[in-house]
Design a protein around this nucleic acid. Structure first.
Lengths: 209, 209
DNA sequence: ACCTGAACACCGTTCAAGT
DNA sequence: ACCTGAACACCGTTCAAGT
């Protein structure tokens, strides 16, 4: 499956050159790499700068502050999540298969992109409750699920309850599974989340009938 | 319902006295109060000390470091959560009613004790993956749910799947609902989580049949 | 035992100055 | 435009010293 980790080569500045060239994206990528390796709390702007061979204040040419950098990471995550969920619908002609694939894709995305996922739903949210673009990206990703539920309802395969409600139920379930897996509450094995979702998918399906 | 916020009066040291008296618990309570007001990232040991009229290093007589203080907050949370879940089973004679009450109690606990809940399941976990007492308390709370599912199975009211699996499914659902509510993803209203659970309870129940 | 103040090695952020 | 170094107001943590 598609992940965002493809271009994650260290984009260090070549010594002696004045301009970095692609500093903005390099800062975001390095932040994601640090968070993925050591957690959100281990992220320091000075460390990011040092890893890229750049002054600790160079970052402020591209981001207002640390939260602005994290907000970009979160937005990048929501955009990629939406793309992942939409792509999951193209593999299977059967609507029921699409729902299961979408759930699998969601949990896999969370595990393959833990750094993004932790920023998207982590403590950083407390400080930026009113960031309209961020909320818009998050909503857009969620709408991929709502559309799936609506299609299933129109095909008569899901009960005629409020689609927003049913979507939130499914979202809460896969979100909970993803977080329990990331936090190690399902055991040390990385793939425990995918396995748990596979076992839960028929239960979720039954709940929607 | 029972919450932990009952004795949350400011336990400031009376000026001039040398010993605080109950400094350890006062430190924990002040940490919880700060987190509840401003988020986990806003917690500083110096701030906690200042709020209690105590030196910034007094804390180290009771806790090895900041993570040790957070671990106590998390353990306190898991113990209280277990008590809340167990208590939810005493109000209703009907097993199905008990399951629904337990789910309601879980979501309500998370919303009424956001500070504890965020520490119990937040980014702090990344740094203390192997804290055996903490894991034991967390497991004990989870076992209250497993016992509920087993009782329902023995009464023939829940399908005969692996009870651990079914318990994790229910846990993931209520955990997801609680976190979405706390993070404001269900709207600004505080009680949105409780309302969403109330609507989801029949869906969860149907999934277990 | 419990508390204190000074000290150390870190942070995020600002700002005048360089190219 | 983009980058730098010094500076400021913070952190967590340690430690010798006080009661």
């Amino acid at each position: 499956m598609w992940t965002m980790s493809t271009p994650r080569t260290a984009a260090r500045k070549t010594r002696g050159t004045y301009h970095h060239g692609h500093l903005r994206q390099a800062l975001v990528d390095e932040a994601v790499r640090t968070i993925g390796r050591s957690g959100v709390d281990a992220l320091t702007l000075r460390g990011v700068g040092a890893a890229l061979g750049v002054s600790r204040t160079a970052l402020y040419r591209h981001f207002a502050d640390k939260d602005a950098l994290l907000a970009v990471v979160a937005r990048e995550g929501f955009v990629a999540l939406k793309a992942t969920l939409d792509a999951a619908r193209t593999r299977c002609a059967d609507l029921d298969g699409q729902l299961t694939d979408m759930g699998t894709a969601y949990v896999r995305f969370a595990l393959d992109n833990q750094a993004h996922y932790l920023v998207m739903f982590g403590s950083f949210l407390e400080r930026c409750q009113d960031a309209p673009e961020l909320m818009a990206d998050a909503t857009a990703a969620f709408q991929a699920l709502v559309a799936m539920i609506v299609d299933l309802q129109q095909a008569g395969r899901v009960r005629a309850d409020d689609p927003l409600l049913l979507s939130r139920f499914v979202w809460a379930s896969v979100h909970g599974i993803a977080l329990l897996a990331i936090n190690g509450q399902l055991g040390p094995d990385r793939s425990a989340g995918v396995a748990l979702y596979a076992a839960c998918a028929p239960r979720i399906r039954a709940a929607l009938e």
